[in-house]
Simulated scan of single mutants.
Amino acid sequence: MTLFTRAATFAALTLSLSGLLAMSTPGAAAELDPTTARAVAIAQPADQSLQNTPTLLPVPVLPVDDATSAPAAPEFASLDAAVAAQSYAAEDEALRCLAGAIFYEAQGEPLAGQLAVAEVILNRSKSGRFPADVCSVVTQRGQFGFVRGGTIPAVDATRAGWKRAVAVAKVALAEAWNSPAANALYFNASRRSPGARAIRVAAIGNHVFYR
């Protein structure tokens, strides 16, 4: 090999070694075209161990519809339907007292009038101006003429009027139907005059309701 040939071979080896060093230099990426650099970054992840890892897509979180997740309250087409949906068993004392007042005060009245009588008693128990429980409201001295010696007379539980009174009382206690006398605290027969400060709320059947 001549001296000239040796020199040429050495120069070629030097250029090749320089090119390899430049490609392995961390700063060499800065000299690439920006578009090319982005393509390389996308095609080759920095961590080569992740190349075979499957891509996990986020699972969408669906909103919860509270209206459909909660059980719907029963709805009735009419007061008659609400009353018909009730059982006739008087399970507790408050229910029996309320049904007794409905039976003795309004058994001959339309269902709306019976419900209004129940509303008066319930409103009194919440008003702070009368006793705080249903039975004490019903048996309060001088308030209801059917009460005898502080007690409600017994009723034959097989009578249709009693069963209806129990059902109406359950509707009132469950607030399953809105009464037109919802704010009333008093009622009397339509033939009687109310007190001077009474405000008329509704007239149903033979009763007028006031607050």
Rank of each mutant, 00 (worst) to 15 (best):
L111C: 06
E105P: 03
L115C: 11
S127T: 08
P153W: 05
A132V: 06
A132Y: 15
F130S: 10
R148I: 15
I121K: 02
E109P: 03
P131W: 00
V120T: 04
G150E: 11
L115M: 11
L115P: 10
F144D: 01
R159F: 02
F146Q: 10
Q140I: 00
K163R: 15
F144W: 02
A165Y: 00
P131C: 03
G145F: 07
A132L: 08
V138F: 08
A101E: 02
V134K: 02
G113M: 01
C135L: 14
S125K: 13
V155A: 05
T139C: 03
G108N: 07
A99E: 11
A154T: 14
V134W: 03
A99Q: 10
A116T: 06
E109Q: 09
A160G: 09
R164N: 09
G145D: 09
Y104D: 11
V120W: 02
L98P: 11
I152T: 01
Q114V: 00
K126Q: 15
A160E: 14
W162C: 11
Y104W: 08
V117F: 04
Y104C: 10
G149D: 13
A99R: 13
A112G: 00
I152C: 10
G142C: 05
F144G: 00
G113P: 00
V117G: 06
S127W: 05
R141A: 06
F146V: 11
I102H: 07
F144K: 05
L111R: 13
E105F: 02
L115A: 09
G142P: 02
I102L: 08
R164K: 08
S125N: 12
A101S: 03
I102K: 02
E109D: 12
A99W: 12
N123W: 03
A116S: 08
I152G: 02
P110Q: 04
G150I: 10
E105V: 01
V120Y: 00
R141T: 10
F130W: 08
V147S: 14
A132F: 13
G128A: 14
A112L: 08
A157V: 15
V117I: 06
T158H: 15
I121S: 05
